[in-house]
């Protein structure tokens, strides 16, 4: 079937099998490999994207369900001025080792901070429960979230 949707602000019209995942369509058909495929069962969060402003696992969305939708992936978070503060914070806090979990975490953290600009550690832990990292032990990820929160409020950025 034909899928028409907006991805990172750009209109896309592509052919998909309706039952394939949005993750597959993004990576294999639209040339957007930033969103990672690790488990295909909703457990790891490395495929986290926004669909119509809501953070979801792209591996659990049927491509056909994105018809007419607005998708934002990790590739869509930076703007002309450079990487998003969440991305800068991850790079500078050492929150990235192998980097496989990073794109999903960046989107998930972006989502947390857009709802609660100064989350407590308990709230961060709960909000990131669906994102697994096998490398960092999460401490540096927490540092990155706190530092991103500070940067965003300094820059007056909500999203």
């Amino acid at each position: 079937m034909r899928l028409s949707c907006t991805v990172n602000g750009q209109r896309r019209d592509i052919d998909v099998c309706p039952a394939e995942s949005l993750l597959f369509a993004l990576r294999e058909r639209m040339g957007l490999p930033g969103t990672k495929n690790a488990c295909e069962q909703g457990e790891c969060g490395s495929c986290t994207v926004y669909l119509d402003g809501v953070a979801v696992c792209a591996c659990l969305i049927a491509a056909g369900q994105a018809e007419g939708g607005d998708v934002v992936t990790v590739e869509g978070l930076a703007d002309d001025e450079g990487p998003h503060p969440v991305q800068q914070a991850f790079a500078e806090s050492g929150a990235v080792q192998c980097g496989f979990c990073t794109p999903g975490l960046i989107v998930a953290v972006h989502d947390v901070l857009s709802h609660s600009p100064r989350p407590t550690d308990a709230a961060i832990r709960e909000a990131l429960a669906g994102n697994l990292c096998r490398c960092t032990g999460y401490e540096k990820i927490f540092d990155a979230v706190r530092s991103a929160a500070v940067r965003m409020s300094a820059e007056g950025k909500r999203r």
Partner: peptide, 9 residues
């Protein structure tokens, strides 16, 4: 239930 991503859907 699950995680925020799962609860959103």
């Amino acid at each position: 239930v699950g995680s925020p991503q799962i609860r959103n859907r």
